Amino acid sequence: MPDRRPKLLILGTRGIPAAHGGFETFAERLALYLAGRGWQVGVYCQRDVETVRERISTRWWNGIELISVEIGLSGPAATLAFDALCAHDAAARGGVCLVLGYNGAVFLPYLRARGGRIVTNMDGIEWRRPKWSLAVRAFFYVSEWIAAWSSQRLVADHPIIADHLALRRPRGAIATIPYGGDPPPADPGPPPLGLEPDRYLVSIARIEPDNNILTLVEAFSRRPRGVRLVVLGTLKVGNPYHRAVEDAASPEVLFPGAIYEPEQVQALRVHARAYLHGHTVGGTNPSLVEALWAGNAVIAHDNPFNRGTAGDGQFYFSDLGNCADAIERVLTDKAAVATARKAARLRADQFRWDDVLASYENALRRVGGYPPAPQAPTAGAATVGAAAGSEW
């Protein structure tokens, strides 16, 4: 007897269990949620090997089919090969395909032509990132258009992203669903790295120009602060930007590298005086949402993405000078910090995982032609477009 349960395949991440970043965390949450609600769920997982022996294999994890794809390449070629193999395999499996990001959009027309029902989370506006060369930015620009027109439904994780996508497709093809988060545990434990609660600021981001890490470090290092600045993220030898960040740092700046243990990162957030967020490109950033749930006062680059996520109750900067001013105020004005922390906790309620995942299920059911969800999703801030309803 055929299995008539709704079916989902998740493409575009390195796989689950999550170990790499926001998309992987989201894929894990959604896969577990839908499997618990009776869906057949498969998640493609990239497996890097020296020699390909079994190109595609499967195993089961918590009721989810993990579809491992062996890749014997490295760099961008490995990513493209993985995306191509996933699209080819998914075309033969049926169900709804949720594609996270549009890096492999060049393969989506093939998947669509083979009858694929495609929902694509369009992530941020990747081609605007200054770190990419002109050729790479052109590739992403074209890929964005291909994804927009190859997918039956687009997901924007921020209203500004939805506005941008509306230049590509009609509004009725776009669902606006943010990223989700959870409240921290009642006892997160002490902060790691020998830090003292409320005696440090923290930045959790890839160390890249469009994340303004150099600006944050320079602003903090203008004079002795009596507290630490903890900059999580990988520094690579020979990278000019990374070298500039290190050269600008005062002795009070700590570079512990990337930390992936969730408990340590959670404790690091909860006990921080404030969270620093320099991102300039993207939608609803997972790290910023997690900072709100941790009740952090936030110092963020002033742009519509960050204001739309964190709200008006936080501290914003547009250049080196007012970044230094914001840091000074956070370190000296206890009342302002307390107000910002209260605002963060209130704002976080707009980013509940239950609301986010229920909105995704509704969108996926519509594209797949499946009956409505057995129970109506919880009403919340996660919204769905008229026809449907970013290490870190």
Rank of each mutant, 00 (worst) to 15 (best):
T215S: 11
A205D: 13
M122A: 02
L364A: 09
L276Q: 05
I125E: 14
A105K: 02
A335L: 13
F305N: 08
D198E: 15
A343S: 14
R153K: 11
P184I: 06
D302P: 05
A91K: 04
F107D: 02
R129T: 11
A267P: 10
R365K: 06
L167Y: 04
G116I: 00
A219D: 14
G124H: 08
V99E: 05
S143R: 06
V227C: 13
A166P: 00
N62L: 14
R169W: 10
L98C: 05
G283Y: 07
G36Y: 09
G75V: 00
G295E: 12
V52G: 00
A173K: 10
R37N: 12
A344L: 03
R365W: 04
E24I: 01
E290S: 11
V245Q: 11
M1P: 14
W127C: 12
I71H: 01
T332V: 10
K342R: 14
D319Y: 03
E65R: 15
E196M: 09
L66G: 08
Y360F: 15
A310Y: 12
R352C: 04
G180A: 06
S133A: 13
R228N: 11
S318D: 13
R365M: 06
I64C: 05
S318M: 03
V99H: 07
Y370T: 08
A81Y: 02
Y110K: 10
T280F: 01
